[in-house]
Simulated scan of single mutants.
Amino acid sequence: MALPEPVRRRLQDLSLTVFTDQNRTVPSPDENFITLPQNHEVASNLPLQMSLYFNAFFFPFWWISEVVMLDLKYPALQDYYKFILVTVLVVMTAIELIRVYLGYTGNLQEKVPELAGFCLLSLLLQLPLILFQLFNEGNLILPLERAVHIVLALFIALQLCARWSL
């Protein structure tokens, strides 16, 4: 399953601006791809791929424990925290599924727009949401919840570090 062409084109334009340097070749208007130099070897990032692999296995455990912990503490929460935590759970679930898919696709198939989408989702949405869940004491953080949030935050931080380490 590929990204829709308008989304892919916008991500490619953004990734050309953000993730490349002065030594790149710019595609002509009739081309839809970046031309690399003949001796340039592109390889996927193994630490990023390993982190995404383990993250994909950890995410169902995180989701189940989050739902159980939310069910346990729901009666004790204030009304606005009930709404916020349910909304954050739904949003984080959708973002995490898309983020891991974009990371896999972008890394294994060496597609820069998908990697740009992965980095943007990780840095701008997923990391702030997991830090909110981890450090906001108003939502009555339980010990299991704190543990799984720490692991997911470490996965996100490691993936961002692995992406920019090359």
Rank of each mutant, 00 (worst) to 15 (best):
L36S: 10
F33D: 03
Q38V: 09
T93R: 01
L129D: 02
E5Q: 08
L3V: 00
P27E: 00
F19E: 14
L134N: 05
A147S: 13
Q126C: 00
L120M: 13
I156K: 00
L166K: 08
Q49K: 01
S44R: 10
S28L: 12
L142H: 03
V112A: 04
L46P: 02
R24A: 05
P37W: 09
Q22A: 14
L48R: 06
L3Y: 04
R146H: 11
H149Q: 15
I141S: 04
A2E: 05
V88T: 04
R10E: 15
L120F: 12
L115S: 13
N39S: 10
V91R: 08
A76Y: 15
V88Y: 03
R163S: 09
L152H: 06
Y80H: 14
F83S: 11
F58Y: 15
A56Q: 11
N136L: 08
E96F: 04
W63M: 15
L97N: 00
Y74K: 14
L166A: 00
D71V: 09
V151T: 14
V67D: 05
K73M: 02
M50K: 10
L129Y: 08
N32T: 15
Q133G: 12
P75G: 00
V112K: 10
L77V: 05
I84M: 09
T20W: 09
L97Q: 03
P75V: 02
L97T: 04
A56S: 15
P4L: 12
L3F: 09
F118D: 01
L36P: 05
G103Q: 04
L142R: 07
T93I: 05
S65T: 08
V7Y: 12
L3A: 09
K111F: 02
F61R: 01
F118E: 04
D30T: 13
L70W: 06
Y80K: 12
N107D: 11
L16I: 00
L152Y: 03
K73A: 10
L48E: 02
L14A: 13
D30N: 11
D13V: 02
C161S: 00
C161G: 06
Y53R: 03
L123Q: 08
G106K: 01
P47Q: 02
R24I: 14
I34W: 01
I141E: 09
I130E: 02
E110T: 07
Q12V: 01
L140Q: 13
V88C: 03
N39A: 07
M92N: 11
I98R: 00
P6N: 06
P47H: 07
G103P: 03
I98A: 05
F58V: 07
V18I: 15
L134C: 10
P27G: 02
F59A: 09
Q49S: 04
G138C: 04
I84N: 06
V151K: 13
P75Q: 02
S28P: 03
L14W: 10
R10L: 09
D79L: 09
Y101E: 04
V112R: 10
Y81R: 03
P75E: 05
L36Y: 14
T25H: 14
L140V: 05
